[in-house]
Design a binder for these strands. Structure first.
Lengths: 247, 247
DNA sequence: CCCCTTTTCGAGCCGTTATCGAAAGCTGCA
DNA sequence: TGCAGCTTTCGATAACGGCTCGAAAAGGGG
């Protein structure tokens, strides 16, 4: 079986579709991804069948395999974005400069918001990607970059004497997994009763506020002088107000 | 279809098994759970089939349904323990008394260790339980108790003027999800390369050390006077050294 | 006009969950 | 002794999901 390459050379000829629906936009590959993304978000990866994805993109089930080797590869194509959004954000924050604690504060707050606004549950992805590292090489590479970036910010803070002495990578991993953990209960919302994120937000504040709480907590815990947290928060607020991070 | 009740009235008669293996211990129900537990731990829930569970407990696939309505109920029966272990631990810590920050410190450190030593990945459970709240009622109830308990500890700390002013439930949720997040990367170990928890521990310390790091970070972030963290840690160390928490 | 390439489809294989009815023991009672 | 009823196990099979395969249905170039 040969799978249609990602970078498309020729196009459009072939046997006509039985269903004409959704022939709208350009290439089928993107349409499949769009449809799959919607469905994964709605019902989770495990809860979505290839037949459903096919129907939603105007194809028959078996035609999907012309574009993707299997279901995992459909997911992979969607999910590279999951790490890229936070990566871009961190880059922007680092370029903006400023003291390490302020950078860290902004990173944490924005990361929580970014992860929470992903249509799918990052934990599900994380698990699936863990079970099939071959398919998800890109995912793991970019996650590693994420850890590296945060590690460097922390190291800089330690060197500048602003952050306490600690194992920078351990701290980075802890922070990132905290962000993911927070995303997780924002999504599941602490129980089956209030399942969607908006319900949680109503009770406890938006993702910005909740991310802010986490950032406050963590950065304060890392600071050499905890009392400087107020200045850090104000600086972060100022920067986030002016330079809107485009996610 | 009638499922054999959980509390067993009569027992043992019926058609003999084709395979005699594993007729060892008492009731089949426990044997199934034991086997399923092992397999879930080894290959994850999704990666384990009912045929495998059956074979491992000396039965045929269809016989499992005499004891459990479906695969989800097998999982549910195993997984109630997931919340009970931390619950018992928190109770012990609270009974031991002492300042709220110390209690919190001990709770966080022990929770990370407890979650990490679970044979299965709590995140997978969390997700499955979220998708099927009916089956997992007990799970959610006990998780709610967990949140409540931590909330109360925090509230006590605030009232005593030891912890900063904050939304106690928000803080409790954040802390618990951080523990879960930490468990998550301890398990997946930051990437597909070093997949088992021991590999991670080798690099960054045991679950006790990593839990300690998180506890340090979080409690310090919550303290009114961050400089008291050293006393808190020492108190916690002392208590954990003497009164060994039985998990 | 016919062959080649591209795209799509239908049929079907295989593995998994779950159901159903029957088989195979045991127990107790006529 | 024999048989009726209960409990436990099994085999067959339905339903469904992922994935493969070979062929059909176009368009384009010689």
């Amino acid at each position: 079986m040969v799978v249609r390459a990602e970078a498309e050379p020729p196009r459009r000829s072939g046997r006509p579709r039985r269903s004409t629906r959704e022939a709208a936009s350009g290439d089928p590959r993107s349409e499949i991804l769009a449809a799959a993304g919607r469905l994964f978000a709605e019902r989770g990866v495990g809860g979505t069948t290839m037949v459903e994805i096919a129907r939603a993109s105007g194809l028959r089930q078996s035609s999907l395999y012309y574009y993707f080797r299997n279901k995992g590869h459909v997911l992979e194509a969607i999910v590279v974005e999951a790490n890229r959004v936070p990566l871009r954000m961190i880059e922007q924050v680092r370029e903006a400069g400023g003291p390490a604690p302020v950078q860290l504060y902004r990173i944490i707050r924005a990361d929580v918001a970014a992860l929470s606004s992903l249509p799918y549950d990052l934990n599900e992805i994380h698990r699936l990607a863990g079970r099939d590292p071959e398919t998800f090489t890109r995912y793991w590479e970019e996650r590693e970059q994420l850890v590296d970036a945060v590690t460097q910010v922390i190291r800089a803070g330690i060197d500048a004497g602003e952050l306490r002495q600690m194992h920078p990578r351990l701290a980075a991993l802890t922070i990132l997994s905290n962000d993911e953990g927070t995303q997780n209960w924002l999504r599941v919302a602490g129980g089956p009763t209030a399942r969607d994120a908006s319900a949680t937000r109503a009770g406890l504040g938006g993702t910005h506020a909740i991310g802010g709480f986490l950032a406050d907590l963590v950065v304060r815990g890392l600071l050499v002088d905890a009392s400087t947290i107020d200045g850090v928060r104000q600086a972060a607020d100022g920067l986030d107000a002016t330079a809107v991070l485009d996610l």
